[in-house]
Amino acid sequence: MTPNRNTSKIDFTLVLILMLLSLASLVAIYSANSSFVIKQVVFYVIGTAIIAGIMQLDSDQLKKLSWYLYGFGLVLLLLLIVAPSSIAREINGAKSWFTLPGFSLQPSEFVKVFLILTLSKIIVDHQEKHISKTTQSDFLLLLKIGGITFVPLLLVMQQPDLGTSLVLIAIMVGMIFISGISWKIITPIFGGGITLATGVLYMVIWHPEWLKKYLGVQEYQFGRIYSWLDPYNYQSSTGYHLTQSLLAIGSGQTTGKGIGTSEVVLPENHTDFIFSVVGEEFGFIGASVIISLFFLLIYHITKVALETKNSFYTCICVGVISMITFHVFQNIGMTVGVLPITGIPLPFISYGGSSLLGNMLAIGLIFSIRFHYKKYMFSSDE
């Protein structure tokens, strides 16, 4: 059927959601530290240009680029490890950034999106090759997904960057669920993983001496868990950020104290703890607005995934959903004490060029999906 030329190829609903997120970001950053607002505007402009470029690429072109981008991301991570401190200095104990004149770059923020593309291609190619599924083919696909994720995961852990490592794992888990691998294989693997994590947490709390004796874990490495479980006993050290965050959010009550009236001193309040600023200055209502915007974003991407008939596009949507959902859940969770602090920014809201541009790149993929498949929305074929 002839494409419907009267149908818009631009996803204006997604445009609106992104505009509202950008507005919320600028207001929150202005409240936290007004000196970063202009830079955030510049990052949003650059991100918009990235979206415009990505929109031009269809599924075949994205597939062809996936391995090149994946390889490029690994090269950047490797260079980061061997780079001298003059261009890759440690920040907060992690060597995660290239620090160059005029700008800084965190490669792992882009590697997350490259991983989504590569895993999507692997899953689709495997499904096309193994039309009749078997236990052996499912195990093979699981090994492919795990292997492709493990390489960047290992490099990111070398920095070390626990937060990004967890995001890569979250992306992998989401892609495994959409891959078509039998639940007979998935269930025991994830069941075992949950049991192991529960066991480790149990030993950290009740028998830390076992971990010290048999695994060589040092005392200071327990600090982040202990300060999460009982932050007020560690208020002068590892629990400082959490206690201040709880105080800020709690003091905002229902409507907040008003823009630019923060009273609680909180380091990194324009980046990782931007949600604490929102809670203090705009209260429960402001925090609810932010959460609602993310809900609308995730809902919309889910809708795109369900509407498209292209398996590659569906996998991309699931990867982006997994990445953004984990970021939001982890960031907000750590600011209210539900989860340990891992240094993950709040997508589209926190200040940060690499984080924002990485997320805009991911959203660009969603715009690309809508841009290309809506041309044939009344056709029986993809």
Score class of each variant (00 low, 15 high):
1 M>S: 12
5 R>H: 14
6 N>P: 11
12 F>C: 07
14 L>D: 03
14 L>S: 07
17 I>K: 02
18 L>H: 04
19 M>W: 11
26 L>S: 07
26 L>G: 06
32 A>F: 02
34 S>I: 09
45 V>T: 14
48 T>A: 13
50 I>E: 01
51 I>E: 08
52 A>F: 14
56 Q>V: 12
67 W>A: 13
71 G>M: 10
71 G>F: 02
73 G>I: 09
74 L>H: 02
77 L>W: 05
87 I>T: 01
87 I>Y: 04
87 I>S: 09
91 I>R: 09
91 I>V: 13
92 N>H: 14
92 N>K: 10
92 N>Y: 09
94 A>Y: 04
103 F>R: 08
105 L>G: 05
106 Q>K: 13
112 K>N: 01
117 L>I: 09
118 T>A: 12
119 L>V: 09
122 I>Y: 08
124 V>E: 14
134 T>P: 07
136 Q>T: 12
137 S>H: 08
138 D>I: 08
142 L>F: 13
143 L>T: 13
145 I>K: 05
150 F>W: 12
152 P>M: 02
153 L>H: 10
153 L>R: 00
158 Q>R: 12
160 P>G: 15
161 D>K: 03
162 L>S: 05
166 L>R: 00
170 A>F: 11
172 M>K: 10
172 M>I: 08
173 V>D: 06
174 G>C: 06
176 I>T: 02
181 I>N: 03
186 I>A: 06
188 P>W: 04
189 I>A: 02
190 F>A: 08
193 G>M: 15
194 I>E: 05
195 T>L: 15
197 A>Y: 11
197 A>G: 13
199 G>Q: 06
200 V>E: 09
208 P>W: 03
219 E>H: 07
221 Q>M: 08
226 Y>L: 07
229 L>C: 03
232 Y>T: 14
233 N>A: 15
233 N>V: 11
234 Y>F: 15
239 G>S: 06
239 G>M: 03
244 Q>Y: 04
244 Q>D: 01
249 I>P: 07
250 G>E: 01
251 S>Y: 04
256 G>E: 10
258 G>L: 10
268 E>Y: 13
269 N>S: 12
269 N>C: 07
273 F>G: 04
281 E>H: 03
282 F>D: 03
286 G>Y: 04
288 S>Y: 02
290 I>L: 08
292 S>F: 15
297 L>N: 05
297 L>K: 00
299 Y>K: 13
303 K>A: 06
304 V>R: 01
305 A>I: 11
308 T>E: 04
308 T>C: 09
315 C>P: 03
319 G>M: 09
326 F>E: 00
328 V>S: 05
332 I>R: 02
338 V>P: 05
339 L>S: 11
340 P>I: 04
341 I>T: 14
347 P>Y: 03
350 S>R: 04
353 G>N: 01
355 S>A: 15
356 L>Q: 06
359 N>R: 01
359 N>K: 01
360 M>P: 00
363 I>L: 15
365 L>F: 13
367 F>S: 00
374 K>P: 00
